[in-house]
């Protein structure tokens, strides 16, 4: 059951078509979810509006726990989008995987390190951008040599390690989940005994993967806010 990615060359760049597909699907689902839940907004919230307002309050809480609202308020939309996009992405690979001619098409987009590292890099770049924008280049530069000058190399390493851990943590969790799901599915497809034996572990592992996917979405959003706060907050 060795799968490989359906890649193609376009404009001199390599495109993993399954990633392109799944990114589009995840984005579309998030967009539809957000639009449906905010379709009929009312002062007295009902049903879906309650849910999306709960999400917003949740992200507000995340931001509020890392920086004060005056600085952090502008990151609310970013946080909500990251949280929902990663959550949906993590969930996409759970119910099934589709492979055509041993090319894996349907999977979590976050089960690919390229995607997670892209998101992680984007977040870290954003922290630098807002660090310079909100505190000024001088104050931003001073952040690298405070509290002590010799910490400078470590601060540089920290930036890279932050990016790597942020991306790879998400990738590892989701990829591992999908690997095991794939193995269990293979076992289930091997015969009646295999199906009977695989059913219960499959159930358990899918439940656990939902939990892991939720937690990872939360951690990614939380760390995003922590890194941003690290750069834009006045004291740390």
């Amino acid at each position: 059951m060795e799968h490989h990615a359906p890649t193609t060359e376009f404009l001199g760049m390599t495109f993993n078509l399954s990633n392109v597909l799944m990114i589009t699907i995840a984005s579309a689902i998030v967009f539809i979810l957000a639009v449906v839940t905010t379709r009929s907004l009312a002062m007295r919230p009902t049903g879906l509006q309650n849910f999306i307002e709960w999400v917003m309050d949740f992200v507000k809480g995340l931001i509020g726990s890392t920086m004060d609202w005056k600085t952090g308020g502008r990151f609310l939309f970013l946080g909500m989008t990251i949280l929902m996009y990663i959550f949906v992405s993590n969930m996409l690979g759970l119910p099934f995987a589709i492979a055509i001619d041993s090319e894996l098409w349907w999977k979590s987009p976050t089960a690919d390190p390229t995607i997670t590292l892209t998101l992680a890099t984007m977040v870290v770049v954003l922290t630098h951008y807002y660090g310079i924008k909100m505190k000024g280049a001088k104050e931003y530069g001073r952040g690298f040599v405070s509290p002590l000058k010799f910490l400078f190399p470590f601060k540089i390493i920290e930036e890279f390690s932050n990016t790597l851990t942020l991306g790879l943590r998400l990738y590892g969790n989701i990829y591992a989940g999908e690997i095991l799901l794939g193995l269990l599915a293979g076992l289930g497809g091997a015969g009646i005994a295999g199906a009977l034996g695989a059913f219960l572990p499959m159930l358990v592992w899918q439940g656990f993967s939902i939990f892991v996917g939720t937690i990872q979405a939360f951690i990614f959003t939380m760390l995003t806010m922590v890194y941003i706060a690290h750069k834009v907050a006045d004291d740390h």
């Binding site: 990615a5 890649t7 376009f10 404009l11 760049m13 390599t14 495109f15 993993n16 990633n19 392109v20 990114i23 589009t24 984005s27 998030v30 967009f31 989008t81 996009y85 987009p109 690919d112 390229t114 995607i115 892209t118 998101l119 984007m122």
Partner: peptide, 17 residues
Amino acid sequence: GFAAGDILFQLVAFIVL
């Protein structure tokens, strides 16, 4: 594999989203 296209697509998709 290193897929520059994926990176670009993910970035654009996220920003558009």
